[in-house]
């Protein structure tokens, strides 16, 4: 097992991690292309073929992505970088099934999501994707554990099972003591860890992070990125992160640069 540079404040015990892995990885139908921890796999978890996306702004049509193709393997940690308006977030939204392409094929976790209805897409998202946003987007009236539990409400798990899973994930992100706190009572870093726990709770195939450290100070950002790296390495989660920060991108195993709706270049990053 690789050593991970985690701050002691949220480094979970190994037994806790194992327990968490066991608890979060048993919620029914899963993507079969998933790899075991520590392995890399060339089977693509994300495949975009000739994707175009235009938005309508009044009478004008604004192209955002044009003939965009990309493959991301299961278990990869990919950073997408580029200037504002380059199409990074649109790309992320298309992969996460939040938006629809104007043309092209999108296959994620073995499913042609461009062919799914809205209802099917909702179910698919619940099963395969965990989202982490720049501003955390937690429910302010709910405690940390209730926020984390949200995606599990859509499953058939009993209250007891849901609680067990929430406890395990809380331990994984080092927030067991803060489980009853509401978002306003948590720091930015803690809120983002709650968001990560919420993204992770249903054991998704893919974690999608839109500027996850954009609202955090350097030290806290590093903690969050280390946690994401841990999830990628130890739990083989495929992670796609959009960032402006080259240091944040450095945590990824692969970096993509996007500009004006085109994939410019890519490079494999050194492991931090």
């Amino acid at each position: 097992m690789e050593k991970v540079n985690l701050s002691p404040s949220f480094t979970p015990k190994l037994s806790g991690q194992t327990k968490a892995r066991n608890l979060i990885a048993d919620s029914g139908q899963r993507y079969t292309g998933k790899v075991r921890a520590g392995e890399r796999h060339m089977e693509p978890v994300v495949s975009l073929k000739d994707i175009s996306k235009q938005y309508r702004r009044g009478k004008d049509t604004v192209p955002v992505l044009e003939s965009f193709s990309l493959q991301i393997a299961a278990g990869e940690f990919v950073a997408i970088m580029g200037p504002s308006g380059s199409g990074k977030t649109t790309l992320l939204n298309l992969i996460g099934g939040l938006d629809r392409a104007s043309s092209g094929e999108i296959t994620v976790a073995g499913e042609r999501i461009d062919q799914l209805s809205n209802a099917q897409l909702s179910k698919w998202r619940a099963r395969h994707v965990g989202f982490i946003f720049q501003f955390y987007n937690l429910m302010p009236m709910l405690s940390a554990e209730r926020n984390i539990e949200l995606p599990l409400l859509l499953t058939h798990l009993s209250s007891k099972e849901r609680k067990q899973k929430v406890a395990a994930v809380l331990e994984l992100v080092g927030l067991t003591e803060r489980r009853r706190h509401k978002p306003a009572e948590l720091s930015g870093g803690q809120q983002q860890r709650v968001a990560i726990a919420r993204a992770l709770i249903a054991d998704p195939t893919l974690l999608i992070c839109d500027e996850p450290t954009g609202d955090l100070d350097r030290h806290t950002a590093e903690e969050i990125l280390s946690l994401l790296q841990l999830l990628n390495r130890q739990y083989a989660k495929a992670i796609i992160i959009v960032t402006h920060d080259p240091k944040a991108a450095g945590y990824a195993t692969r970096q993509l640069r996007v500009d004006k709706g085109q994939l410019l270049d890519e490079s494999s990053a050194m492991l931090v």
Binding site: L98, A119, S122, R125, A126, R127, G130, N137, M139, L154
Partner: peptide, 15 residues
């Protein structure tokens, strides 16, 4: 934004 997040995590339109 909260309802959007609910939808993002898998709540259907009808839910």
């Amino acid at each position: 934004a909260e309802f959007a997040v609910l939808k993002a995590v898998g709540f259907s339109d009808n839910a």
